[in-house]
């Protein structure tokens, strides 16, 4: 049992260390972003990390792009420009792409919530001077991230064996702390809307 847990923990910890280390490398060497364009999702061009609002907005924009791709496919299918088979294949590809994108953005937003103080998060939101519509969107995005993370935990939960109870508790405590912090951020944003 301990061997499996040890491997899982090792993956988790090495990943955390790589993230911390790479954040500093990219901050000092932003040219890496040009070399590896996938980094543009997480980092600004100057090598600083994007904040919650930037990530949540980009997540929304990417969702809208996917919705627009879907509408285009619906139109082509309705006009018999593509066959049912082509339509279904393309739709599945779109959903798959959306799922992967969501998972990535959820992870990045969740990581910022975990690794920042409430004060840092609040300041990063204040600086945009957002209107109520943008604040509501941001609160909804954070809510969706929390829901997806709970669902992810539920799915992984099925793989846990009863003899790994301590490890399950460890994972559960970790995720519940993060979810509760995400809920706190969400409430803070909703309060800003009310005022």
């Amino acid at each position: 049992m301990n061997k499996d847990i040890k491997e899982d923990l090792y993956k988790e910890k090495i990943n955390e260390s790589i993230n911390k280390y790479v954040n500093n490398i990219i901050l000092n060497n932003p040219e890496f972003i040009k070399k590896y364009p996938i980094l543009e999702i997480e980092y600004n061009v100057d090598g600083t990390k994007k904040d919650i609002y930037s990530l949540a907005s980009e997540r929304d924009i990417k969702k809208m792009q996917i919705k627009s791709d879907k509408n285009e496919l619906d139109f082509k299918f309705s006009q018999n420009i593509i066959t049912k088979d082509e339509y279904e294949k393309s739709i599945n590809k779109i959903y798959e792409k959306q799922k992967k994108q969501d998972l990535l953005y959820d992870d990045l937003i969740f990581e910022i919530i975990n690794n920042s103080t409430m004060e840092e998060i609040k300041n990063s939101i204040f600086k945009y001077n957002l209107n109520n519509i943008d604040l509501t969107r941001l609160a909804e995005a954070i809510n969706s991230v929390s829901e997806n993370k709970i669902e992810e935990f539920r799915c992984n939960n099925k793989d846990f064996m009863i003899d790994k109870l301590s490890y399950w508790n460890y994972k559960y405590n970790k995720i519940s702390k993060s979810i509760s912090k995400a809920r706190e951020v969400e409430s803070f944003i909703i309060d800003m809307v009310k005022n």
Partner: peptide, 28 residues
């Protein structure tokens, strides 16, 4: 490159491996 968690992790791992010294890696 497709936008996925695994691809982003892979890129970060490559950057990490390219910049870290053996000693730093052992310490980590």
């Amino acid at each position: 490159m497709e936008i996925t968690i695994d691809n982003l992790k892979q890129v970060k791992k490559e950057i990490f491996e390219s910049k870290i010294t053996k000693e730093e890696k052992n310490n980590i």
